[in-house]
């Protein structure tokens, strides 16, 4: 049931920022998440600001220092089949390929995938929950099998993105354009925990647009990927998943980035596990220690302790498969 809204499609970033700064404006990239939210009445919108005419938000190009710049309007399908991304940043390619369905990937964009609203069924449903205007989080004592085991507190959503964990693992930096010009935000600092603000998922301020993501040069010899577990074979969000980028040199882990999906309100980097790995050989003992470090501090709700097991399983599976 789409409510009434005005529609604006600016052709310059300056105009787009101006339109988005107005009260009740919402950004439309691929539209796949926005239209669902509007249909479900998740938030009120006076105007839909379509970004699709902003040419500078499209496309993938090399950066001078050997990295890659991906425009926020690049579709997930374009990312999933981009040969350079598949070769140098497999975690991102696999993340994009594992999201949603083929048609949604043809339409949904990287920017939209990063900025999509949570899929919590209370948030999306006819419940006045804390993330909307309500008093409390229904998941706390409700149907919480899909909810967070890390970082929950006042709201127990999990971040729905399959590309964001990869981008955090790859140490990507987002460019954000807003009323005050452009700023750079590392993806690792882009997302906001409920403890900070349970009404938003990221640092974008009113009127700000995520315009591009810049990936630094891929470290030599890095092994990476994204492993996602879900109920259905496709068209499903992660019960838990792991985006990783690991460099093994001379039999030892030189650098490890492990970021979990589906278990926390933000892409959940398990820095303790990374620490455990760094400088060590990837033997069974190290893997076991990393597995334990990855789940340390988990606070499951009544129905989602299984996610701890899934995290253990996926960390073990991934690390064991990396050539020593």
């Amino acid at each position: 049931m789409l409510p009434n809204f005005a529609y604006v499609r600016p052709s310059t970033l300056v105009d787009a920022v101006k339109e988005l700064a107005k009260p009740g404006a919402a950004a439309h990239a691929g539209g796949t998440d926005l239209i669902g939210c509007l249909r479900d009445g998740v938030f009120d919108t006076k105007s839909v600001v379509s970004l699709t005419a902003l040419k500078e938000l499209h496309g993938v190009s090399a950066t001078p220092d050997g990295g890659l710049r991906i425009g926020a309007l690049t579709t997930l399908a374009e990312i999933a089949r981009h040969p350079e991304i598949a070769k140098l940043y497999p975690a991102l390619a696999q993340g994009a390929a594992s999201a949603a369905s083929p048609q949604l990937r043809n339409q949904g964009t990287l920017g939209g995938n990063i900025c999509q609203r949570p899929r919590c069924w209370y948030f999306r449903g006819d419940f006045d929950c804390a993330r909307k205007n309500g008093e409390f989080c229904y998941a706390e004592n409700g149907e919480n099998r899909y909810h967070a085991i890390f970082g929950g507190e006042t709201c127990h959503i999990v971040h729905p993105s399959d590309t964001a964990p990869a981008l955090v693992a790859l140490e990507a930096v987002a460019t954000v354009a807003g009323p005050n010009g452009k700023r750079k935000v590392p993806l690792g600092k882009f997302f906001v925990l409920p403890a900070v603000d349970h009404k938003r998922e990221n640092v974008l301020a009113k009127g700000e647009i995520l315009t591009e993501v810049v990936l630094p040069k891929a470290p030599e010899g890095a092994r990476g990927g994204y492993r996602k577990m879900r109920v259905r074979g496709v068209w499903d969000f992660a019960l838990a998943g792991l985006a990783y980028s690991v460099v093994v040199k001379g039999g030892k882990v030189e650098r490890a980035r492990l970021v979990l999906s589906g278990v926390a309100p933000i892409p959940w980097r398990v820095a303790e596990a990374e620490k455990v790995l760094t400088g060590k050989a990837l033997d069974a003992a190290t893997v076991k220690a990393a597995v334990e470090a990855a789940v340390a501090g988990a606070k499951p709700l009544a129905e989602n302790a299984y996610k701890i097991d899934l995290v253990r399983a996926v960390v073990e599976e991934v690390l064991t498969a990396i050539p020593k």
Binding site: R119, Y122, R124, G125, F127, Y138, N141, G142, E143, F237
Partner: peptide, 15 residues
Amino acid sequence: VLDRQTGKMVNANWH
């Protein structure tokens, strides 16, 4: 899935 707190169906969609 029915919400035990409200009796409402929480998964009334194909996702």
